[in-house]
Amino acid sequence: MGTLLFELALTFYFAAAIISVVELFRGSKEASRLTFYATCAGFAIHTACILFRYFSSGHLPITSMHEASSFFAWCIVFIYFLLEYQYKIGLIGSFILPVVFVLMLSSSVLPRQIMPLDPVLQSYWLGIHTLLAFLGNAAFATAFGIGIMYLIQEHYLKSKHLHGLFQRLPSIQVLDEINYKLISIGFPLLTLAIITGIIWANNAWGSYWRWDPKEVWSMITWLIYALILHIRLTAGWRGKKAAILSIIGFVVVMFTFFGVNLLLKSVHIFK
């Protein structure tokens, strides 16, 4: 049942990602609508899949790499819906849904069995800490997509070759504003995630900070986004520089998420 739901959600996300990329080049209104419906269907099934796993394991399904990738993808789609609701820029999907699909795909190849929960993790902090971290990272993932949109639109305007996507992308000021909003939402979430993590670490392991690679890389992520917000507020750095930094920021997020688990030894490792 859980497997079936997961595969179904994956299929819908796959369809949505493909259609949304086709939409980039073709630009038909039907494609845009189809993308949205496929994503809605994928999201509904995905939600059911996560709930199913929650009830069969008894804890929030974010302890294995399979679960974590899947949940990360879920959070991004959630933020995508919020953005669509507020800004109604159909094209956003083309830049976010492929990321969602890649996350779901990596989730699908990872071992799926439900592992017994490590006693250390049995705490309500698990829910709070991870939820904050994932939502924060999802906001950064979306900011990454928006950042790319910004750079494309900026390139059109600077090079003065105004064809293709130019007409359909929103104004750079809107993109910059969304980018800024997402980071200013993601940053406090990440900050809270780190704080709750520190408290939880003290409860579970008896020390606040252990220079664990995951901790270190989360801190680096935090610093990058702190920097983006800081120079924006002080020097008024916005637009292109902010877009580039938000792309770099997300690369670091992805490394913290996947790289640390695969390449470095960490207590945070998902099983």
Binding site: Q153, Y156, L157, L162, F166, L169, P170, S171, I172, Q173, V174, E177
Partner: peptide
């Protein structure tokens, strides 16, 4: 048209 793509 250009102004619309630059400003919100």
């Amino acid at each position: 048209e250009l102004a619309r793509k630059i400003f919100k």
